[in-house]
């Protein structure tokens, strides 16, 4: 006999997001919600308002992406003269200093990852809304990678904090964070929430419907 049965939703089973215990769906009175008997988390068939939430967070991240890249993320002040750095110019300095591996690392974490994440989440949202049947397994893997990789973009924020604490030599040299760093941190956090609020099971629901 095959191990494959059907989906949990079709069998009226709710899969707990937190502890993965299955619960039988029951009729509830208005204003009540079902709670997992094992861990106490609130139960849903799918993450609540997944598409609307993910869209809202993704659009907010797109908007913040602009100041994050245009405004300076930090300024090195040396003998009274300030040299503001954006994310891009920070990478450029590393290339000019011939620190290629680190330049590549920062370029990947700060420029490629946030952009790829925004584009991927947008494509996933559109594919789910169009009830696409295209390569559901690959789209699920893409989602898993996107969800896992986002946190690495915090690299630049940590770097600024460490530089600011170390380089405090009064008039000789100081390092100040810039407004771009706040926007950039917001982009990283908001895209993390966006990825978390997307429910990959929606990809597979389209496959079920047309079966």
């Amino acid at each position: 006999m095959s191990d494959v049965l059907t989906t949990a939703a079709r069998a009226s089973l709710l899969n707990c997001h937190t502890c993965h215990r299955l619960s039988m769906a029951r009729r509830l009175s208005v204003g009540c919600h079902a709670v997992c008997s094992r861990c106490g988390a609130v139960l849903h068939y799918r993450k609540p308002n997944s598409l609307a939430r993910t869209w809202a967070l993704t659009l907010a991240a797109y908007i913040l992406y602009i100041p994050a890249n245009l405004l300076p993320i930090m300024t090195v002040i040396s003998y009274g003269e300030g040299a503001p750095d954006t994310i891009m110019s920070g990478v450029k300095h590393l290339i000019e200093a011939e620190m290629y591996p680190i330049a590549l690392l920062v370029f990947f974490a700060s420029i490629i990852v946030p952009m790829a994440k925004l584009i991927t989440v947008t494509c996933l949202l559109i594919s789910v809304q169009k009830k696409s049947r295209w390569r559901p397994k690959d789209r699920t893997v893409l989602y898993r990678v996107t969800e896992g990789i986002g946190r690495w973009s915090m690299l630049d924020i940590f770097m600024i904090a460490i530089l600011a604490a170390l380089v405090k030599l009064g008039s000789i040299a100081t390092i100040e964070p810039g407004a771009g760093a706040i926007s950039f941190a917001a982009v990283v956090i908001i895209t993390m929430f966006a990825a978390m609020s997307f429910d990959p099971r929606l990809i597979w629901d389209a496959m079920e419907e047309k079966r």
């Binding site: 191990d3 899969n15 559901p136 990959p200 597979w204």
Partner: peptide, 15 residues
Amino acid sequence: THSLIACHDCDLLHR
């Protein structure tokens, strides 16, 4: 239901 598990990414039930 305790002998079943659903995939958290695609909702498929497995024994």
